[in-house]
Amino acid sequence: MTAPGRGGAGLTPPTARPHRPGRAVPPRRRRITGRAVALSLAAAVLAVLAVAAIAPGLLATHDPLLTDVRGALKPPSSAHWFGTDQSGRDVYSRVVHGAGRSIGIGLLATGLALVVGLIAGSASAVAPRPVDAAAMRVVDVLLAFPEFLVALLVVAVLGPGPANVAVAVTIAAVPVYIRLARAQTRALAAAEHVEAARIIGIPRPLVHLRHVLPGVLGAVSVLATIGIGTSILAAAGLSFLGLGPTEPTPEWGLMLSAGRNLLLQAPWVALFPGLAITATVVSVSVVGRVLRARAEERGA
C-alpha cells in the first residue's frame, strides 16, 4: 500500500493505513520460520548493541581514546579486531564506545518526537477546525520531505553542534507522529467504549486520559520503533558532514568521515563504523516491522 497523496486519494480502500515511505513495507505473506529467524537475529544484534551502549567497557578491548602513533593504520588482527585508525586508536573499541552516542541520539530524538507528536496530534484532533486544517497542511508539506533534508535545513538555521543535531533530527521526525496521533485520537474519541465512559458521567479530560491516550500511545509507539532507525541514519549523516560531535569523540558518522581520507591505505577505518550503522538500522527495522505486523493482526 502506498501513501495516497493528493492525486491518489480515494483510490485506496478506506481501511488502508497511512504508510510512511522509507519506513517499512506492509508485511507480505511470508513463512513464519523466515520471519522468526530474521527476528531472532535482529534481537541478538540489538542485545549486543544495548550492552555496548550501556556498558561499553564490557565489550571494548582497548581505550577508545588511547593513541599510539607507531601502531597507526594497522589492518585488522587478533590484537586489533577492526584494525587501528590514523592515530593508532583501536577501531573496534571506538565502534563499541560509539554505540551509546550514535544509538542514543536516535532514541532520544524518537522519544522526544513521540511525546511532541502525541501532544500536538491529539491537540490538533480536538482543536477548532481551521486550526486543525492549518496544522495538517504544514504537516503535509513537512511529510513530503525526507527526514535527512529537513534535519539538514534545521541544522543550517540553528548552526552546527551535537545538541542542535538532536533538535534537528527530532523536528524532522515529529510530523509523522502528529499525523498518526491525530488520526488515532479522532478514531478513538468516536469509539464505543469512550462514548460509554462519557455517558456514565466521567469528566471528558479524564476519559481522554484514561481511554483515548493509552490507545494512541500504543499505535504511535509501534511506529516509533521503526522511526528510531531513520533518526539514527539522519543523525549519522549530519555528523558525517561534520555538523555534530567533534574529534576525538567516538561516533560512527564522525569515524566514517575520518575514514574517507584513508580509503586507500586503511579502508577498515571507514568500513566498520558503517557496518555498525547498517546492522543497527536493519535490526531496528526488522523488529519494528514484526511489532507492527503483530499490532495489525491484533487490530484486525
Binding site: 549523516g237 558518522g253 580509503l263 568500513l271 563504523p273 527495522s285
Partner: peptide, 23 residues
C-alpha cells in the same frame, strides 16, 4: 536487499563503492 540498501547510510555505500571500484 531493499531493506539493507535503505538501512545503509548513503555516505557509507559511497565509500565502499569508491574503495572497491576506484582504489
Amino acid at each position: 536487499i531493499e531493506l539493507v540498501v535503505l538501512s545503509s547510510p548513503v555516505f557509507w555505500t559511497g565509500l565502499v563503492l569508491l574503495s572497491v571500484f576506484s582504489f
